[in-house]
Nucleic acid binder design. Sequence first.
DNA 1: TAACATAGATAGTGAAGGTATCCAATGGGT
DNA 2: ACCCATTGGATACCTTCACTATCTATGTTA
Lengths: 206, 206
Amino acid sequence: MRISELSRRSGVSVTTIKYYLREGLLPPGRQTAATQAEYDDQHLRRLRLVRALTGVRGLSVSTTREVLDALTEHTGDTHLVLGLALGAVRLSDEAAAHPPETAEVDALVKELGWAVNEAAPARATLAETLASLRSLGVPVDARTLLPYARLAERTAVLDLDQLTGLADPLEAAERALLLTVLLEPALMALRRMAQENESARRHAAE
Amino acid sequence: MRISELSRRSGVSVTTIKYYLREGLLPPGRQTAATQAEYDDQHLRRLRLVRALTGVRGLSVSTTREVLDALTEHTGDTHLVLGLALGAVRLSDEAAAHPPETAEVDALVKELGWAVNEAAPARATLAETLASLRSLGVPVDARTLLPYARLAERTAVLDLDQLTGLADPLEAAERALLLTVLLEPALMALRRMAQENESARRHAAE
DNA sequence: TAACATAGATAGTGAAGGTATCCAATGGGT
DNA sequence: ACCCATTGGATACCTTCACTATCTATGTTA
């Protein structure tokens, strides 16, 4: 298909598609002439993926590019792709500039018995959150997070279960990415509703 | 204290503080003369809160204002503040324009037995996420979310436990907000690490 | 009273994420 | 075989956001 059909089928304007091509979010089409290129279903799929990551999750264009690069370069190894993709998705860019003290978090990870990369940005995210909460007078430490971590373990089991039975490695890697990144707003939405429910329960019980 | 001391103690530049005052993120100081105003610890606390919400969580200035307004206007009722504050934090602004079909999600909430506001934006967030995942070929439905919801229930219990024993209602409301909003990146970081661990475990087991 | 700080107003900045316009080269419909 | 809308590629422009800088009149302090 040509660019106008790609635009029509995805709902993304032609100029925006051109912008994504420039930014490397979308691989160039197969050139058929000097001013003609051919796009296929891969492009359409990729375009929808880009819109999901930027729109639903609010990833920046540059982060999206890093994530997609990890996805296409290491398609074979789902475990590796997950690590790379998630590493690229920084929750906050501040951490890179001022790497916080992660000793406390490292101890937590050790106590949990988790096999997690030493350089995982998630460690910095945790340390930063703890520091912020404490500066605002909320008494939290790594131990506070322990029961949350146990629930996260069970969430991860559910996540990984969704990936079984996918033969195509590209498909598996892509689904891993989607479930990890796109499910985040949904899980937070569930938490908020559960909080509302729990708050109402306790309120009524008094 | 005057603005320069507020700046020094918070690490936020004087010009930025003036900007926050203009934007209504910070209440004006007590005027002592035509070109002089006095700020107190409330302002310092509020300023740190603003930096935490915008910096750690990445909330926009306007969203932050809505959240803080809910916090100060309904200080007495923690349950209400939580609802309002969380309602103001839209995960994605798209939902407001194109309200998605929430029937499926509503059924899930009913099955869970949760007492949740009919108009809660979290419902739309869930519906939108499901729609996105399906458009990308991931076979999910509301039932898929059920086990996640059960884990969210237990997370919410932990959250509400952190709020017990706070006499001052403003403090309780503020802490509720902090734990809900600031803990989000931390919980997602835990989930990612847990996924990495679980992925490694299954990889090794083969 | 001289030097410096402050409040308030207005204008400017830089990054991000597009959008619009131009151009030469097609290429499907007649 | 012709013609004009479409295309790819390049460049310039636009809008929003979150600050940042500058200016002026007024205070404060040593």
